[in-house]
């Protein structure tokens, strides 16, 4: 699959990329749920929230899959900045439902990860490496 790593403090951090890969579809649905957007606006929306993609175009295969799955719908209209009509994406009813269930899954998952990562490291473990 085409690379969709994010820029950040550590350019191309593989963990960050893996994490994003798992939730990028939800992020796209969320941005489009806010208001219909075209591709470049979606990338800008991600960047404003700290998820700057190394290859911005990697959203297009994903948008195509979401549209094919009936979660997104597209239409053409002139952009707010003027110029030729752009292809805007908007959420369908199925997309809204998917976004709702995706949010719940993510929140439950994030809580579980938080609980796990916030476990303190005992002095003994730090000295010996901790794992037998």
């Amino acid at each position: 699959m085409h690379c969709m790593t994010v820029k950040g403090s550590k350019d191309g951090d593989p963990r960050r990329s893996q994490l994003l890969r798992g939730v990028l579809d939800l992020c796209l649905l969320a941005l489009v749920a806010e208001r219909p957007r075209y591709g470049f606006e979606i990338v800008e929306g991600l960047a404003e929230r700290g998820m700057e993609l190394v290859s911005e175009g990697s959203i297009y295969p994903l948008l195509a899959r979401l549209e094919k799955a009936g979660l997104l719908d597209s239409f053409r209209r002139p952009s707010e900045s003027g110029g030729a009509p752009r292809k805007y994406y908007r959420l369908t009813e199925a997309g809204l439902a998917e976004l709702g269930s995706g949010r719940e899954s993510w929140e439950a998952f994030a809580r579980a990860v938080d609980r796990t990562l916030s476990v303190g490291i005992t002095e003994g473990n730090r000295m010996t490496g901790g794992i037998a």
């Binding site: 085409h2 190394v54 290859s55 911005e56 175009g57 990697s58 295969p61 899959r65 094919k68």
Partner: peptide, 20 residues
């Protein structure tokens, strides 16, 4: 343009075509 399609344009195009 590389910031949009990445270093490997063929991979980018193939991914998109496959999805469509």
């Amino acid at each position: 343009p590389e910031a949009v399609v990445g270093e490997d344009v063929t991979a980018f195009a193939t991914d998109w075509a496959t999805a469509r």
